[in-house]
Design a protein around this nucleic acid. Structure first.
Lengths: 135, 135
DNA sequence: CAGTATCCAGACGGATACTG
DNA sequence: CAGTATCCGTCTGGATACTG
């Protein structure tokens, strides 16, 4: 049934999980958290090698953000060549069910790809179909 | 244990859920899917009113993208004042467990906020702590 | 109502080079 | 090693106005 009382909805957008998404799924945070969660502690350079396409600057930015949000801990070892290790926190680890749900859903990616093919193949001509440009 | 065999990881980033994140959590898609999933069919203007801060252009963009990905269906009713309805698809609905996991985790937002306060309060002086600028 | 058409700003991320 | 310092291009998303 169509909803017609779309008034009086709380502030912002009527979506309680939006803030969570901002915290967990900003750019690059997913691979970082995933790696730290799956494979344990890593030093900076190890993360760089895991996530091959990230630049040091961006990696630093994201790690700081995750540290600030309490999802990752940074440990500095004042040794001869400095050593720094990053580890996921308990709070970060509590995201596991989220990642699991995502991993399970990933079996559907094929369907998404098929849907895209269909959409792009459907002649933009004929009918009142919406013409979307591929993003 | 620290991982030291960070070599030979597949292509891209060693994170199988990254593609899913791109599909589901690009900007504004979360509120749109959430609303459609929770409250059923909506017409364009109803979505605009639900998600109060989105502009028509962006709403259109995101709806096209979701339609192309097969997560949403658009139905055009050629009536006197045109009527268009958006509905979530089966595929879209299959994301429910993901949203549920996210909703459950949202109880932790308070912890994140506390962590941010701590981080920002900790004097940037003293020790080898990383000085992060709030984003 | 359900969009489209423009235009624009500024945030984000990439490349490159340098340092404690 | 583990970053930081700069510079810069791009691309998204916002504001605004208009239309079938």
């Amino acid at each position: 049934m169509t909803n017609d009382t779309a008034v009086g909805i709380p502030p912002e957008q009527a979506c309680p999980i939006a803030p969570v998404v901002d915290i967990v799924f900003s750019r690059w945070t997913t691979p970082i958290l995933w790696v730290l969660n799956e494979y344990g502690r890593h030093r900076f350079v190890e993360l760089e090698r895991r996530i091959t396409t990230i630049t040091p600057k961006v990696l630093t930015d994201r790690l700081r953000q995750l540290e600030r949000d309490g999802l990752v801990v940074r440990t500095y070892h004042p040794e001869v060549p400095p050593r720094v290790e990053y580890e996921i926190t308990e709070l970060g680890r509590s995201l596991s069910p989220v990642f699991e749900a995502l991993a399970k859903w990933s079996v559907n990616i094929g369907e998404v790809e098929q849907a895209r093919l269909d959409y792009d193949t459907r002649k933009p001509v004929g009918g009142q179909a919406s013409r979307g440009r591929p993003r």
